[in-house]
Design a protein around this nucleic acid. Structure first.
Lengths: 217, 217
DNA sequence: AATTTGAGTGAACAGTGTTTACTTTTTGAA
DNA sequence: TTCAAAAAGTAAACACTGTTCACTCAAATT
């Protein structure tokens, strides 16, 4: 029996799988899940449409893998911010703002990643898989940072960090979705008294964090 | 020439149009835009698929009308809250919470209404149509309420009400989307130390409004 | 009464995801 | 090295989708 954990055949297979994913990634980033068709994908890869089903059970499963690597990107990026040694107030604000920036950079990824519903499994809050998933890990980094804020006295002590993290996450998510779906979001009139997008993101982040701060009233 | 603003023919036409919309509304509420197919819709109405195109230019246009009446619902509901004579703090909180409740009651409507992109026109922030649209009106009701809070000293005076309204709207939107897309959202484990959904909505609303309040620090 | 307008339709076009039966290639063991 | 088994790849079909076109038939207008 062969004990090689990765046979040549298997490595070759993974390579093709990766090639499919890479091609899918390109069109997905530009046109989203609806623009990504198995048939078109097969053509750019020079395979027949049916061939793809030897590597992925369904289109949904393929897209789910794109999402998962996107969550990895989020996790890494958030980690990079949280692990910094800059002052806490600055760090927490940057964390929120950066999260939104990622969504803007890959709008289709972001929207698809959180518009779950019709997916394969989608390890979701409340289910066993959540804590282990990249999504769950990213969330735990965030709630950990808030717990830090509660401990060092920046935030109110009467709030549950996990609860607060969920609230903040929702607020971030909302701005991200707004910007992603409404290209001109923070603006009312394109020229007049308009706050620039990045500036608005910081404003929003401040606003959100202010809701947590101590010494209130 | 006939001056009757609504001829019998025209009235009959509008009636059929309404019948189509009513049937579409039913299946849309249950299965969303993807579940609503022209062919299936035609069958429940006992028409041929092509007939629907005599009343609507495209499926997108049909769905857009469903969205528009949904925005009317939002506008009415928000108005009912804002126009109340209850204390301001309570009123502002209820306004936020109620908005999210609407989204929960009609999740597909809400998600579709704000996942614009591939629509016909979608009068969007920054464009002329926005202020006149139901969406725009609902927003103005919200920003008006915040302006009231700034005037009566509840909120910080150094913030632009319109900007603050956008920030709050984004936060509300985020929670709504979270709950809509992730059925178990506010929960981590279904039983243990979980805050009930409605309770969490109020918590979030408080959190969001707290960010605006005066006498800070 | 004749003609134009509009409602309604069957069939087709151009797509989609997916499955099935089939061929070819590659692999692992006798 | 030969040979069977496993895997890779495919063409064609199934069951859908939104949409358009040429056509019929009934209703309204002149």
């Amino acid at each position: 029996m062969t004990i090689s954990v990765s046979s040549p055949a298997e490595r070759r297979r993974n390579k093709i799988r990766a090639r499919i994913l890479a091609a899918a990634e390109r069109v997905f980033a530009r046109e989203g899940a609806d623009g990504l068709s198995i048939r078109r994908l097969a053509e750019t890869i020079d395979y027949s449409p049916a061939a793809i089903y030897k590597y992925f059970k369904s289109k949904d499963e393929l897209v789910d893998e794109l999402k998962e690597t996107f969550f990895e990107l989020i996790l890494q990026t958030v980690h990079r911010i949280v692990d910094k040694t800059t002052p806490f107030s600055e760090r927490s604000r940057d964390c929120v703002a950066t999260y939104v920036q990622i969504a803007i950079e890959k709008p289709y990824h972001y929207a698809a990643a959180f518009a779950g519903e019709s997916n394969t499994v989608a390890p979701v809050d409340g289910e066993p898989g959540f804590a282990a998933s990249k999504k769950g890990q990213a969330f735990m980094v965030l709630s950990g940072m808030i717990a830090e804020g509660v401990e060092n006295g920046t935030f109110r002590s009467d709030i549950d960090p996990v609860l607060a993290a969920k609230s903040i996450w929702a607020s971030m998510h909302g701005l991200a979705m707004m910007i992603v779906h409404i290209p001109t979001f923070p603006a009312f009139k394109p020229d007049q008294e308009t706050m620039a997008r990045d500036e608005f993101i910081l404003f929003h982040a401040d606003q959100v964090i202010r809701g947590l701060e101590a010494h209130h009233g």
